[in-house]
Design a protein around this nucleic acid. Structure first.
Lengths: 136, 136
DNA sequence: ATCCTACGATGGACTTCGTCCAAGTCAAGA
DNA sequence: TCTTGACTTGGACGAAGTCCATCGTAGGAT
């Protein structure tokens, strides 16, 4: 993530203060913010930034593959900047905390041909659920 | 699913025409309706049924473990009545269609101890993504 | 069979999350 | 520095879902 700005510039992204701030907010490991949290933190540095811009920028980062959308049942989407490091998620059923994890094995390979129904399977998302030490 | 009504009655559910209709709509394999679709189909049989009742009933069925919520990024939740038969999902990135699938292997076992961060991991959800034959 | 009452249904307002759009602004190449 | 088209803005809009006061009724009690 540290050189995200450089990579984006290399892809012809017009660099604006808004985009810089959003990218800076999405920095680090185990960061899983909602769009609203991103907006809140971005607004701390750039008070007049609009919600629409945050949504636009997050959408572009997702399209560029720099950020992943994490689906959390029933809640707002979360954005995970750790897209360049393939990983899965471990979610606490109590408090909703999310950790990045790295299971071994090949989950796509585990899906038999006759279970694919002609789909071109491109990716797999795995979500482990359980109680974190604090909630147990 | 066929004896869902009996099981529910056995748990002390008050049986109403609305609940019966919702339960009947959620019948069969590979059924993954959104709340709105459930409402639409229920209303075909019971025109005055309200959206709130459909949401309430779906929520109760989920709480009772008779129905699963399937999270689909960016779209409405879908409800899967096949909860008693453990399975995973294959989702079309184009049209959102969902199929039940049964991967081989042991996904929970694939998560190394040092990647569990002290969590008591109880379940795992796997979502395969790709394009269905129609969308490819 | 009928009566009672607590549980369930209703529908409309409200909230949350997200998208769209027309107008204004500005990064960066000429 | 000038120009221009890409970017930002904020408010309206929309979809999905929740809440709540009120009404209706399933099913036990009589």
């Amino acid at each position: 993530m540290s050189d995200l700005l450089g990579r984006l510039r290399g892809r012809g992204w017009r660099m604006t203060s808004q985009r810089r701030v959003v990218a800076e907010v999405l920095d680090g490991d185990h960061v899983h913010l909602t769009a609203d949290e991103v907006h809140l933190r971005a607004a701390a540095r750039l008070p007049e930034i609009s919600r629409a811009t945050v949504y636009n920028t997050l959408g572009e980062l997702v399209a560029l593959g720099e950020v992943l959308e994490v689906s959390t049942v029933g809640r707002a989407k979360r954005y995970d900047p750790n897209a360049r490091n393939p990983h899965q998620h471990l979610v606490c059923s109590g408090c909703g905390t999310v950790r990045d994890v790295h299971p071994v094995g090949n989950a796509i390979g585990d899906l038999p041909e006759e279970e694919r129904f002609g789909f071109a399977v491109g990716s797999v998302e795995i979500t482990y659920r359980g109680l974190c030490p604090g909630c147990a």
